[in-house]
Write a protein that binds this DNA or RNA. Sequence first.
RNA 1: GGGGGCGUGGCGAAGCUGGUUAUCGCGCCGGCCUGUCAAGCCGGAGAUCACGGGUUCAAUCCCCGUCGCUCUCGCCA
Length: 593
Amino acid sequence: MKLKRTHNCGELRIAAKDTTVVLNGWVENYRDHGGLAFIDLYDRWGLTQIVFDPQVAPEAHAVAHKLRSQFVIAVEGEVRARPDGMANMSLDTGEVEIYVKSFELLNKSNTPPFDIQHSEDVNAETRLVHRYLDLRGKRLQNNMIFRSKVTGMIRNYFLDQDFVDIETPILTKSTPEGARDYLVPSRVNPGTFYALPQSPQLFKQSLMIAGFDRYFQIARCFRDEDLRADRQPEFTQVDLEMAFVDRDDIMGMLEGLFKGLMKDLFEKDLKLPLPRITYDDAMLRYGCDAPDLRFGLEITDCSDVFADSGFGVFKNAIGAGGMVRAINLKGAAAKLTRKDLDEMTPFVKTYRAKGVAWIKMNADGPQSPIVKFFSEEESKALFEKTGAETGDVLIFVADSEKVVCQSLAALRDLMGKKLGLIDESELNFSWVVDFPLFEKDDNGNPTSVHHPFTAPRPEDEALLDTDVFAVKTNAYDIVLNGNEIGGGSVRIHDNKMQQKIFTLLGISDDEAKEKFGFLLDALQFGAPPHAGLALGLDRVMMLFLGTDSIRDVIAFPKTQKATCMMTSAPGVVAGSQLEELGIELAIIKDDEE
RNA sequence: GGGGGCGUGGCGAAGCUGGUUAUCGCGCCGGCCUGUCAAGCCGGAGAUCACGGGUUCAAUCCCCGUCGCUCUCGCCA
C-alpha cells in the first residue's frame, strides 16, 4: 500500500482543518449523488465522512461510484469543516469531512451476508459462520475492546498488589468429581489421556506450597457440560490465591478490585465492605445462594401456620417433611391479573413444583381459591407473619425444601422484573458466606458443595465425625445482580484433613493417591495456610455490558452444541491420526457404513 | 437425556381453514441525481418455502422423522 494512514477514522476534529491527512479503513456506506459522493469510512476507532468532489479530484471521483460496502481503501485528502448546518453531531468526527485528493483501493469485498452494523436480529448461524464480520460491527468491537480494557485493569490491580502472574498447564490430569473433562489423547503414551483443566485449582495450591504467595492468572478453563446463555465449554477465570491469609483477606482483596473497576469504568463509588449474607440466610430469604438484592420480595416460611391446616395440600406437604413458604408481592394486587397468577403454575412446573397458590388482598376481603380452607386463626397468623395488607398478593409453594426454594426463587426473579422493581442500571454486589462443606448427592452421600479442597471451619471440625452435613466452611461467593460471579474458600493445608475429606467423599485411598497423590505429598512439605478465589470473567463482562448472551463477550464462541460454526470444529480426523494415537472409534459415521 | 421457540430470495419479516404469478422492507444489479449521513427517484434480478417421508386430486401450510440455531430443566466439584 502506498497511502499509509496518518490518523485513524475516529480522531479528526475541527482543529485539524486545512491539513492533509491519509485515512485507511472500510467503507461502511456510500451515498453517491452523481456529482458529489460521500463515503463513510470506518475502523475500530470511529467513522469519518469522505467526500469525492469532481472539482477537487476528477480522477478519484470518476471511480468512486465503484466503491461498495466493506471495500478496504486508503484516502488522501484535505480536512475541511463541514458547511454551515451540515455538521453531524452524532459523530465524534462530525464537524469535519475529508475531501479526497487521491485514493487507493486496498481490497474489494463480497457483499456481506448481513448488515454488519445491525446484526442483532440476524440468525445466529449466519453471524457465527461469518464471525469475523459480526466482530467488525460496532457493538462487538466495543465489547471486545471493553473486555481488553477490563482485563488490563485487573492485571494492573493484582500486579500492583504484588501478585505474581503464573501460567499453569492446559494439558493436565483428569480428576474425579466435578464436571466432565475434555480429554486429549497422548501419542507418546498410547492409551492414556490428558484432561484440559476445569480450573487451575491444584496448580495454584501447589504454587502456594512453592512459596509464590500471591498468585494470579487470567486462565482458560474447560468443562464438557451442556451449554446455556451464560455458559461456554471454554471460559475464563480470574484465578488467585494467597498464603498466610484468612477469608477476610481474600474478600478485601476482591472488594478493592471491584471498587477500582466501578470507579474507573463507571465512575461509581462502591461502598465497602460489601453486604454479607450467610448461605442459610440466603436460602431461607431468597431461595437460592446467589440472590438478587436489587429488590425485596423476601420469602417467608409459613410452615408452622399450616402444620395442621384444613387445606390438605399445605398440610400434606408439611407432613411429608416439606414446607410451605410464601412471598408477599407488596402492592401487586392492582398489577397482576388472574391470568398472571394462573400462569405461575406452569412456570414453576419446570422446577417440579405442583402449583402456586395465591391470595389477592382486595379491599373487600381476600380473594383466593384456597383461603376458604383456612381457619380464622390460620388466616390471621398468616397475614401477620407475611405482613399482608390490602393491595398485596401472597403467593405460596408447598413442597420439599429444594422445590420450594427453587420455585420461589424463580418466581421472585420473575415478579421482580414484572413488577418493575429492578433498576437495570444498578450493579449490586454482595457476598454469600458460610457455605456448608457437603450436600447430599442423589444417594444421600456427601458431595462437596465447593470442591474437595475447601477447609471446614475450625470450630466445625469435630462435626466431621458426627454430623458431616452440619459442617460449615469459610467459603464465599461474590454475587452481582443475582449472578454468582466468583467463589473461593480457605483451603485445606493439612494432609490428614485432606485425606479425611477424601474418605468422607468416598474416594478410596488408592484413588486419592492416584488422582491427588502429588497434592497429599505436597501438603506434607510445609504447606502454608492459604485461600483464594476465582472470578468468572465472562459473566462479569456480561453484567458490566448488560448483555444476555455470553457469546457477546467472547470473540469466537461456540454454539449450544459446542461447535464452532466458523471453523467447523470439532471435526473428523484422518484415520492415520487415530492410528498414531492408538484409538479406534466405536461410532462409525453413517456415510461410511 | 427432557421441555419450549424458531427455520420462507443475501438479511429481516408476511402468507397458510391446503389451490397465490409466494407478498413487503432492506440489501444487490443498472440508470438518474452536487450536501448526503441507514440519502432520494426510476427500473431490474434474485426462492429446491431447512432436509426426508407421509396424508391428499393438490402441501410453504396438515402429520411423522431428521438436521441446525436458540431458551430452559437435569447437568455445570
